[in-house]
Every structure is written in structure tokens, then in C-alpha cells.
Amino acid sequence: MHTTQRPVVSAGSPILAMARRAAEYRAAGRRVIDLTLGEPDFTPPAHVVAAAQRAAARPLGYTPTNGIPELRRVVRRTLERDRGLRRTDAEVTVGCGAKQVIFNAFFATLRAGDEVIIPAPYWASYPEMVRLCGGAPVHVACAAGSGFTLSPDALATAVTDRTRWVVLNAPGNPTGATYSHEAVAGLAEALRRHPAVMILSDEIYAHICYVAGEYVSIAQVAPDLSERILLVDGVSKAYAMTGWRVGWGSGPADLILRITAVQTHNCTQTSTVSQIAAVAALEGPQDLLTGRCETYRWRRDAALAILKRSRHLDTQEPDGAFYLFPRLAADDDVAAADALLEAGCATVPGSDFGATGHLRLSCAIDVATLEEGCSIIVATLGGNPAWSR
């Protein structure tokens, strides 16, 4: 179980820090376009809101720590519908967002000095969660030329006898990177040689994918590794329910039991109303997911058309999620983000994601505002000699 050694306190989320700075500028009367948060601007589906209203109008008590039975059942049906995976009730647990499920998994399994392999660029919270749980994040750089994806050779080189987890996130935050069936199979083959390594497959953006064909999960490609895979998902991104805080993990029963034990002592359960709303989201019409994905694709393309006009940026077309991750001509991404904030557009420095010299922009905003923000970026970088090639 988890070490009793006191972890180092995290400095907090750099994404939220930049969002707070943007809010402070707006509170002072300045116009700032906020492209920092990965938060959909859609409203939750109407039938989800109605289910929550009905639930809130009746007495509600504590629920099982691992989620109400109805939600666990519908998560299992969703895994079978969307991934072709059959899971038992003991192999599913519910948390306060996918983020908490990941933290609980690390807390339940990491001992002091255990290593977690994290492909870079990475979501800023992964390494901080590992550190808070007493582990050591091991960053593996993934080049833009390879689509920001982890190769089997790079994975094999990074594994040591202290490696406890490897993190896979696709479509990825901040790059939108995805893996082909062949690429996932290659990673699975490399992992077969290291039976003590667990696999965290963060699939929170799976429904926001622009490549042809169905989403590919390592749990589908390598069923023989199922006893080592924790698949994490939730309603935050696909269903625009970030503030409802509902996510789930699916994995081996012994790991799920340990995750649930951690949950018992840190917050007891996920909000009952939110769980009931999540049931409605997963059981209701799913065609809205396709429509929203197309909206994100349209926004991505509109932003790319503007950013590609700049000779100071190199912007790849992401295959999923709702971010752009342009490379600056100069490496000082922190100074660039500060300059852009002063000019009226808030972004997040790529160094916060393990990729110095980049900026992360969220496309989860209406296209007119997004285009205005991208125009500010192009004009600001073009007017500053520091960003010249």
C-alpha cells in the first residue's frame, strides 16, 4: 500500500493559474480572450439536466463509495458498446472526475521512489500527482515528427526495475495525439516483457477524435494485459459536464478495491445527483457526440487557418481532443504567454506540459472568439522581434 512518507506539496495547476490571471485582467476591465481551460462551452444535454433536477427534488443519502449500482452498470454497458470490453461489477469504480480516479490509483499503489513513465508533452497534473503520492515521474520526450506519440523503443529504454506505471493518454492533452492500432500493438508488445508495469490508459477525450475509424484502446488491442490496465474515462469532456465531477476507472478487481478504499477515506463518494445525471448521459441519445466532435473539428480548422499564416509558429494538425500546440520560433514560451496575455489572449506555456517552446490553446470556445484570439497571437508574435526566426 501507499508509503507513509510525507510527499512534497504541489505548486498547483499551471493551467488554472493562467486562467486566474486572465480572470484578474477581466475583473480590472480589460478584454481578454481565454484559451487556457480544457472546458467545453456546450451545455449538458437537456435530458441530463432534467434527470438531475428530478434527483435533487427527492431525499438523497450516501451512496456506495464505488458509485451507485445503476451507474456502474451503465459504465459496463458503455465499455461494451464503445470498446467491445466486458467487465464485471467488481472491475468498475466511480470517482469525482477521471482526475480523482487517477490520483487514487497512484495513491493506492506507489511506494517511495516508484517510477511512473509519462510521455511528454503531458497533461500538467500527471507528474504532480505522482510526486504527491511519493513516486518519481519519468518524462520521455515524444517528438512532433512522430506525432507526439511514445514509441516502443523509447518505452523499453525508459523502463527500469522501479517502474510501476506507464501513462498513455490518447487523444492526448495538450497535443491531440492519437495512436494507430499498429502503434498500440507495438507498445503492448514492449510491455509484455515487463509484467510488473501497470498501464494507465486515460481515454477522457476518446469521443473527440478526428481520424477515420473507431477509437483504439490498448484494452482492446491487448486483452492479455487486462490485469494490468486501468482504463479511465468520464463525462466531463464528451458530455460537457466538467463541473459535475463524475469519472470512472475500469481495471482488475484487486486494483479497483484498493482505489475504492482510498476513496472511502478522502471524500466518501461522488455527488449522488451528479451520478444520476451521468447515468442519463450514458443511457441517453449518443448522436450529439458526433455533432459536437464535428464542431470541434471545424473550430480546429478555423484556428489552424489563422495560425499557419504566421512564420513565427509551427502548428501541427491534431488528430483529437480540442487543443492546438504550436511551436514558437523562440524557446521562451513563458515570456510569449505573458506577452499574449498583455495583448488580450490567454494561453498556457508549453513548458508546463514538458515541452518548452510551445503554447497550448483550447478550441473549446465559439469560433468567432477563437479566431479573434488566434489573430491576436499572430499579430503579437509578428510584431515582436524576439519571436523572429
Rank of each mutant, 00 (worst) to 15 (best):
L71P: 13
T290G: 14
A22N: 06
V279N: 11
D333E: 09
G243C: 00
G247Y: 00
G284L: 03
A337Y: 14
A22F: 01
G344M: 00
G12W: 00
L35W: 07
R86S: 15
D233I: 03
A368S: 12
F325N: 07
L361N: 04
S146D: 15
P119G: 04
G243Y: 09
R26M: 09
A57K: 11
E91L: 06
G95R: 00
A141M: 07
F103S: 08
F353D: 09
R300S: 05
T347H: 03
V279L: 10
P7M: 06
E91I: 13
A52L: 05
V116C: 10
P137Y: 05
Q100C: 02
A158P: 13
E283W: 09
M1F: 08
D331P: 02
Q263F: 08
R73L: 12
T178C: 15
P69R: 02
F353C: 14
G243V: 00
G135Y: 05
G357I: 08
G247P: 00
Y205V: 05
L155V: 04
E70T: 07
R72K: 15
V130T: 11
L35F: 06
L313F: 12
G95W: 12
F106N: 04
R193G: 07
S351Y: 08
V138S: 01
T93C: 13
H194W: 10
A222M: 07
G134W: 10
P318F: 12
S310K: 06
A302S: 13
G95L: 12
W165T: 04
A50I: 05
P285D: 13
N66C: 11
V92R: 06
V159A: 08
D161N: 14
E372F: 07
V211R: 15
C96M: 06
T43P: 06
A190E: 05
W165A: 12
V48K: 01
I376D: 02
P14T: 05
A183Y: 01
C267I: 10
P285E: 10
A17D: 12
D319C: 13
G12Y: 01
T369G: 05
D314V: 05
P137A: 12
R245A: 13
S10I: 09
W298S: 15
